Amino acid sequence: MRNLAILAASAVLLVALGGRADAGKTCIVTATEALPKSTGLVVKRSRTRPVSPAILATWRGRSKPIIVDVDVETAGDAQTFSYMCVMTQGSAFVQRTMN
């Protein structure tokens, strides 16, 4: 019985973590699509990170937002674009942030 409870708890944890990973992937794809349209723009790297405590303190949405950073290069000039992403009803909403 104890093993069954441990197995069930582990399954719930894995599903929760897997859902968060899928949300991060969806946010990265949506943020990449939102990049400015520029000839020769090459995405070098993308990553997610939590939003700042100041944003979370005033956040009223149901789902927790994340920040997506996309490193790009255009004609030898490297830049990082940051987007705040929120999952709503299975789709990602992104908005560019200025940090």
Rank of each mutant, 00 (worst) to 15 (best):
M1I: 04
R2G: 07
A5K: 14
I6W: 14
I6F: 10
L7Y: 06
A8T: 08
S10E: 05
A11L: 15
A11G: 06
A11V: 13
L13C: 14
L13T: 12
L14R: 15
L14A: 15
V15P: 09
V15T: 15
G18I: 15
G18V: 08
G19V: 08
R20F: 11
A21Y: 11
D22T: 03
K25W: 15
K25Y: 11
T26D: 06
C27R: 00
T30R: 09
A31M: 07
A34L: 05
A34V: 01
A34R: 01
A34Y: 03
A34T: 03
P36C: 00
K37E: 13
T39R: 11
G40P: 09
G40Q: 11
L41V: 10
V43L: 09
V43P: 14
V43S: 01
R45S: 06
R47D: 15
R47Y: 14
T48D: 04
R49P: 04
R49W: 04
P50S: 14
P53V: 04
A54N: 00
A54F: 11
A54Y: 07
L56I: 03
T58S: 08
T58V: 12
T58P: 03
W59I: 06
W59D: 01
W59T: 00
R62S: 13
S63C: 00
K64H: 08
K64S: 10
K64F: 08
I66M: 15
I67H: 13
V68K: 02
V68R: 07
V70K: 05
D71W: 02
E73L: 01
T74G: 00
T74H: 07
A75Y: 11
D77N: 13
A78N: 15
A78G: 09
Q79H: 10
T80P: 06
S82T: 09
M84K: 00
V86L: 04
Q89E: 14
Q89A: 08
A92L: 00
A92T: 10
A92C: 06
F93G: 01
V94F: 02
V94M: 02
V94D: 06
Q95A: 09
M98R: 11
